[in-house]
């Protein structure tokens, strides 16, 4: 298959180093403490954050830090074929865990002992890169909820097809079966908090692909910053400051 044609254009019209169109909105769920919708192209994810609040199940309470819980779900309508998937399948359990661990790494949990933070992430529309979109949406929702964090985690994926590193794979490219590297970073601290790949790549190419994904994360971080800044300005304006 030709995923990048000789003119250097991908199937959807992007060049190899280009991301899809990004769009984010903050405060989309009224009841939640913080919420956001994040779109990367046709991938659309909604995240809602509740907390910090009292721990529901006392036995899980941690005395030195906050308990972070995450629930990821991907409803049947999010993909083209409306296949009924059982709740709590392996894939969503795994992604829940990935998101929880990534977010835990940046939340200052020691400031909120004996409390609980719930993150709910739901994929409204899936078109590749759902993992990254979920992390980005969760970051925005956490920021919206005003939960103290070390830095904003941002995530982006990159792949390697037709001997070319490609940024931000769409579902079509993802289903080619090539390597798909998802990277999550703390952009200000320049630290990697998430790195996943379930294929084999020679080490030198792998480095290039990770580098590319990291660049993608930084671009996402810039965008998230803008959105947050805009949101803050709106809040200021509404308060009449």
């Amino acid at each position: 298959m030709e995923y990048v044609n000789p003119e250097g254009i991908r199937e959807d019209g992007r060049r190899p180093l280009e991301m899809r169109h990004l769009h984010a909105e903050i405060g989309t769920v009224a009841r939640a403490d913080g919420s956001a919708v994040f779109e990367m192209g046709n991938t659309k994810v909604i995240a809602a954050v509740y907390g910090p609040r009292e721990v529901q199940n006392r036995s899980q309470q941690l005395n030195d830090q906050a308990l972070v819980r995450c629930e990821y779900s991907m409803p049947n309508f999010s993909t083209g074929d409306r296949m009924r998937k059982p709740k709590g399948d392996r894939r969503s359990t795994e992604i829940s865990l990935v998101i929880r661990q990534t977010m835990e790494a940046c939340i200052l949990t020691h400031l909120m002992p004996r409390s609980q933070i719930d993150i709910f992430v739901q994929v409204l529309s899936a078109d590749g890169g759902t993992r990254s979109a979920c992390i980005n949406a969760a970051t925005l929702a956490l920021a919206d909820a005003g939960i103290p964090m070390r830095d904003l985690v941002t995530s982006c994926s990159a792949g390697y097809l037709n001997s070319t590193p490609l940024l931000d794979l769409s579902y079509f490219e993802d289903s080619a079966g090539g390597p798909d590297v998802t990277v999550g970073i703390l952009p200000k601290l320049d630290k990697v908090t998430l790195l996943q790949m379930d294929a084999r790549l020679p080490i030198d190419i792998f480095e290039n692909v990770v580098q590319l994904a990291t660049e993608g994360c930084k671009a996402v971080a810039n965008y998230i910053h803008e959105v947050l800044l805009e949101n803050t300005k709106q809040l200021e304006y509404r308060r009449g400051l």
């Binding site: 959807d12 899809r20 083209g80 078109d127 769409s170």
Partner: peptide, 11 residues
């Protein structure tokens, strides 16, 4: 029968 939606960027 599946409905496939793909993005198409114009440059």
């Amino acid at each position: 029968v599946v409905k496939v939606v793909r993005e198409h960027y114009l440059r």
